[in-house]
Amino acid sequence: MKLLFASSDRDLLLCYGKLLQADGRTVLTAFDGPQLFTQLAGGAELVITDARLPRLELKGLLRFLKEEGSAVILLINEKKTKELYRDLLPEEAFLPYPFTPFELEDKIREILKLKDTKAVTL
């Protein structure tokens, strides 16, 4: 599975870039909007991104990913952000900081299951 992790915090990129490599996943990383889109050119089943990624028009990205059929997990720092993107993402797609690696893994499983269920329904 190809997974893209995007955050402007290089330490976060470093540790999660490694942590998420379990179970044969390919993990791509990006630290800003342009790099994210560059990495996305190769396609990704799941995009995990910070809501405040620099130089990124988030709504545009979310609409693009929705069309591409990629799942998204949005890392948020405040509840207000959820209200802004509720119409573009399901409730399960939001993961507030701080989170543990286990919480992120649980979220990944949950969102991929949801994606599969929707695919089956469609």
Binding site: S7, D9, L19, Y97, P98, P101
Partner: peptide, 20 residues
């Protein structure tokens, strides 16, 4: 409060990596 959250996430992740 907002600025503490990412460093805490990083510390937890790094600790997990060390343990692995």
């Amino acid at each position: 409060e907002k600025e503490f959250k990412i460093p805490l996430t990083v510390i937890q992740a790094d600790t997990e990596l060390i343990e692995r």
